[in-house]
């Protein structure tokens, strides 16, 4: 079983995507959300934090791998930084997905719950990119 990490600029988006993805599982899949930053006054702000991504990967770590789904921009940079901070043997089993965040997480959670490999789960999640939302 692989784990999923959801990285968004917004805490509520990360938490919400985790909840939605969690609905898709049949067997429990480790899913952690990382969103937003906390400023010097302890207030949540929009942003991403590589250290928080790293902590999420470490807390959810599974030998089968960790798929990281990101929203955009610095979420990807933070995920990359987090991976650089991991030991080589863990980094090799982590993958940043090209899937869109919401649809990708829904598909990935279900596929992970079926026990599919990191590569297969990511392939299914990334396939979302080729589908139209509305049939015309």
């Amino acid at each position: 079983m692989i784990a999923l990490i959801i990285v968004s600029h917004c805490h509520d988006i990360a938490e919400g995507v985790c909840r939605l993805a969690g609905e898709m599982t049949q067997t429990p899949v480790p899913i952690a959300g990382v969103g937003g930053i906390v400023d010097e006054n302890g207030q949540r702000q929009i942003g991403t934090d590589a250290t928080a991504v790293l902590e999420a990967i470490e807390s959810c770590w599974r030998p089968a791998g960790v798929l990281i789904l990101v929203d955009l921009g610095s979420a990807i940079l933070s995920a990359e930084t987090a991976l650089e901070l991991l030991p080589d043997e863990q980094r090799e089993r982590c993958l940043i997905s090209n899937a869109p965040l919401v649809e990708g997480a829904v598909v990935a959670a279900l596929e992970a719950s079926l026990g599919h490999s990191l590569e297969d789960v990511n392939r299914a999640a990334e396939a979302v990119r080729n589908l139209d939302k509305v049939l015309r």
């Binding site: 898709m24 649809e103 829904v106 598909v107 279900l110 299914a124 396939a127 979302v128 589908l131 049939l135």
Partner: peptide, 19 residues
Amino acid sequence: TRPSPVVDVKSILQIMQLQ
């Protein structure tokens, strides 16, 4: 009832395409 592709029922993504 509405034009849809023939989809693989083992894929959630494809089932959603049935709309």
